[in-house]
Design a protein around this nucleic acid. Structure first.
Lengths: 148, 148
DNA sequence: GGTTTTTAGGAATCGTATCACATATTGCGG
DNA sequence: CCGCAATATGTGATACGATTCCTAAAAACC
């Protein structure tokens, strides 16, 4: 567990706790995938994860990793960043249909932002258009404070 | 040119005009790629485009299509929809750093939305975090009026 | 213990995108 | 017009991302 970055340790433990409470199996692949993602400050691609797990899981194949990703994602513990094809740990209590990220294209750091709801302007637009929103993707790219 | 959907014909012509005015070459691959994208009501994947161009361009290879996509994208005439890995024509005057889409996951229709600026809530968050925004991705998924 | 459900292993394949390198075409100064 | 530089294309190979399908193991339940 000490290979999970310290400020994400709590996330790891709370995920485990959540699973225990809800009768979900925390299997070896799932555990290792979550550890890999939470252990990284930056989002990881599926094949980055695959590499990291070569040792602990004896060279797993893509489906193994994708299955675990799906599992954690479906329970809201990790998010996919569409514009990076990469995965990152959720930094709050899971299960929100939208996620928002602030992404530095220079250093690759990603910060999760939490809006409790769709911004008003958009809410309005989607109402006008009659869309019943299921989820949304919001990714701001730019240069972070330290990289400027 | 009559294979460009009628309500996108103007977009095609104004792109050509823009290129002439700015000394940009409208080559055969570029022309065909733009026509393919504007000729479709729904976003096209790169390999969809590749297929459509099999005849007019004599079975082009991926780089041919991607280069033309990059070209039009860099001049703001088409957008990439990250959560679909697909490309769609811009429906207004080009060159805005952010694009916003309303996507029906049932019928695949996409509507472009134009916010002139980043929603206030996000603007605030990105200021707090010190991000200098270069571009942003905003994609609302759900079910459109007619599909509900 | 036997059956059902859940999970994992693994080969193959598909979809998306880029690299490297050769070739062609265009634009422009002499 | 020629030759050079800049721009753009053709093409094979390869990298990266994700899924399908089928088999086998492990857990949960009776």
């Amino acid at each position: 567990m000490n290979d999970v970055h310290h400020d994400r340790l709590h996330d790891f433990e709370s995920a485990i706790f959540y699973c225990e409470k809800n009768g979900l199996n925390v299997t070896k692949p799932r555990e290792e995938v979550l550890k890999a993602i939470l252990g990284s400050k930056k989002p990881l691609g599926a094949y980055d994860i695959l590499e990291k797990l070569a040792e602990p899981l004896n060279k797993p194949k893509p489906p193994t990793v994708y299955r675990a990703i799906d599992f954690w994602q479906s329970h809201g513990f990790i998010h996919r960043i569409e514009s990076l094809n990469a995965y990152i740990g959720c930094d709050t209590d899971h299960h929100h249909e939208g996620s928002q990220f602030i992404i530095c294209d220079k250093c690759g750091n990603v910060e999760e932002v939490h809006l409790c709801s769709v911004p008003a302007e958009l809410q309005k637009k989607s109402e006008e258009s009659g869309l019943k929103i299921s989820h949304w993707v919001l990714e701001l790219h730019g240069t972070c404070k330290t990289c400027q």
